[in-house]
Write a protein that binds this DNA or RNA. Structure first.
Lengths: 151, 151
DNA sequence: TTGAATTAGTTGCATAACTAACTATATGTC
DNA sequence: GACATATAGTTAGTTATGCAACTAATTCAA
């Protein structure tokens, strides 16, 4: 009966190895070709800071689906690049607020444009409806795996 | 007009950070809970060898969407675990054929069952039609990014 | 108010990814 | 046959991931 839904391992290997990393690799390549020396992982952090600056590392982890240790090291590298700084929170001394520097500003429009270009290359001939379904399925997969089991 | 198709970065962050890694993490966790000491990356190589044994590293790279260097080290680690061996090809001395050992045999059914279980957890309440659309979109994204541009 | 439990962040360890440079073998062409 | 080119695999260097153990600060509760 499981085989009614998917051939063994097939969907898994599709999900894990193919389209998603192809998109990531293309975006990384487009960054490099444009002379940008940041990784897509670093970009994903900057992306959330451009939406809302001065987030805690914890909050950045939640928004980018990473654990604390990964965020610690991503912020280390972004600090080395001079794109963010850690500022101690005044209300909770455990917390670092991650703040964009002036050096990060010029990257915003450039990386948005490259991300859009990459999405256009990736989503050529794919309809809005299909994209909505994919996004919706992904959200539900994520919810299936992260919400507590109520059964 | 790009915003007609997707909100900036939104689909990207969905694809890159969320559902796919949640599935991978869950499968890894299910392996660990079952006492299996292999990574999902190692499993993805074994998976293809169970379908067809004695593949070259090159061919394994193609089938698992990895580059040569990644395959070299995955095979290194699988050899250390005693699950595969490298056998020099008799017809082309550049080629290593990667061969399953007897130690890998008992893992096949067990990991298939765990992968199926993981897929059931992930795909709860997601219809066959939606799964087909996701698979189809992924294939077309991959094709968009890997086939030569004919425009 | 003191002691337990929780939360934020860091560090060590192992695995894995990509790029680029490298060796060795094979192939194709003059 | 000899040289250029292509292919298979390895290695070095950098970045990233997950887990577990750890410190420091905060909160909760008796």
């Amino acid at each position: 009966m499981s085989n009614n839904q998917f051939k063994r391992g097939e969907l898994y290997s599709v999900i894990n190895g193919m389209a998603t990393t192809a998109v990531a690799r293309r975006l990384q390549k487009n960054f490099r070709n444009a002379g940008l020396e940041i990784t897509i992982e670093q970009w994903s952090v900057l992306y959330h800071l451009w939406k809302e600056d001065e987030l805690s590392q914890q909050e950045l982890g939640t928004r980018t689906f990473r654990d604390k240790a990964s965020i610690t090291r991503l912020i280390d590298n972004l600090e080395k690049l001079g794109l963010v700084i850690r500022v101690a929170s005044k209300t909770d001394r455990r917390v670092n607020l991650v703040c964009l520097t002036d050096a990060a500003k010029p990257l915003q429009q450039m990386t948005y444009d490259l991300a859009n270009q990459t999405m256009h290359e990736s989503l050529k001939n794919i309809s809005k409806e299909e994209i909505e379904i994919v996004k919706n399925v992904f959200q539900r997969v994520y919810d299936n795996l992260t919400s507590p089991d109520l059964s």
